[in-house]
Design a protein around this nucleic acid. Sequence first.
DNA 1: GTTAGGG
DNA 2: CCCTAAC
Length: 471
Amino acid sequence: MNQVEEESLYHSLEEEAIDVDCLLVEPRSDQVSVSSVWCFEEDNIGKCIKTEDASYNLGGSDSNINMECVDTTKLNALDVLPHEVGVENLLTSNGISPCDDYLIDIGYVDHGACIDYVSNEPLHVGNSSSESPFPMFRNKGNFGIQNSLTDSIPESECQNYFLGNIFGTESKTVDKFEDFSKSFIDEEDDEGNLPLQFAQTGMELTPFRQDLITNSAQEHGVGGITHKRSRKPTKRYIDESSNLTLKNCKKRKEPSSMSKVKMSTVRRVKSQNEVKPKENIQSSEISFGKAIQVPFISQCPTECEKISLPTTTENQIESFSSGSGDDSETQMMRSMTGGNQRKLHRLWTVTEVKKLIDGVAHFGVGKWTHIKKLLFSSSVHRTPVDLKDKWRNLLKASRALKGSRVEDEQKRSQPWRPLPKSILCRVRELASTYPYPREANNNSKISKSKFPIVPHVSFSEGIKGNKVPVV
DNA sequence: GTTAGGG
DNA sequence: CCCTAAC
């Protein structure tokens, strides 16, 4: 390229330049200015671009990183032409740099720490070496660009930027992740090495980590601002919180024309992979292959509870489960775990089974709501569906009992079915009287009459501990 | 809203 | 226990 071409190119670039100083004087929330020196290298030849001032329009909502910085770069001070630094290749047609899938992946597209990515491979930042395509992420302790970024942003704006743009309106997520980000930093060892999980996930060392460090720097930083900037919430967390909001908004599902099976699949997939709605990203370009895997701590209490519950005695369970505040407890647990949590598994006690059998004897199979209302009104956690399911299981158990020798069956099933033989017998008896809908088709329609003649059997009247039904 | 049935 | 179709 000859001199004339170079000059004309520079002029055209100059025309596109925006007033950087203006931006720096009155920085807007969506603009992050860089006042530090940028050094772009190409193949370590030593051709450097120095930009005194560069302004980035980070486009908070649309996640497009404009390349105004490139336009405003004073190329005349350099002997590097745009194509040599690969500038013209930086943006794809949709305005996202070729690296954006990586950025999106980590969720830091609109994060200042990612700026260097925009510059693509040939553009190295700071004292980067060539050992990696993204040297600043390989070199420990090289956080110059991030620091300069945050330095040049008024702190309040910086807060707003991160809290507003990264976390969107979900301010609660900020608090939730403060602790986690702290603990994450703590996981770093003395040499600044990353925890093993980074190496295992094959992630490049990341803006994410930088953010943490800047984060902690801000925590102890000047200005007396005690706000802590937190790391970006995981996709899972976002999804679960959004699901919670969604559930609150529309309580009941609308039957959609979409295949429900597909819907359920989508929902499950979403819970793992869904993008944060705040990020208006071209989803087709998103790749989650390198997503950060984060332990989801809030699951822990549930697990503990699940584990500890079966060890409680029957009476404890009874009193525990029949409380009126039970439902709220379940609800609270659900909301705590993001609304996506499975209902707490409660073992069916013998008393409950007796009540169920009683109810079936009284009202017949299929009147689950009836039974629920009359016999299980105190135990909120037992829904009619639960009763139905339990009855189904009881039938299964009783059939199994019938199939094999009673003693063997008892022995074999002892660990998982502590139900007394008598109860199973009773179930079997009732099953023949009130055939379960499916069996009703196969077997003879013995009794569809409302009140078939059945010996009135009531377990509930029996003495506690006495498993023998009272006839 | 309830129930049946598959998962 | 969850989910969904069918009623």
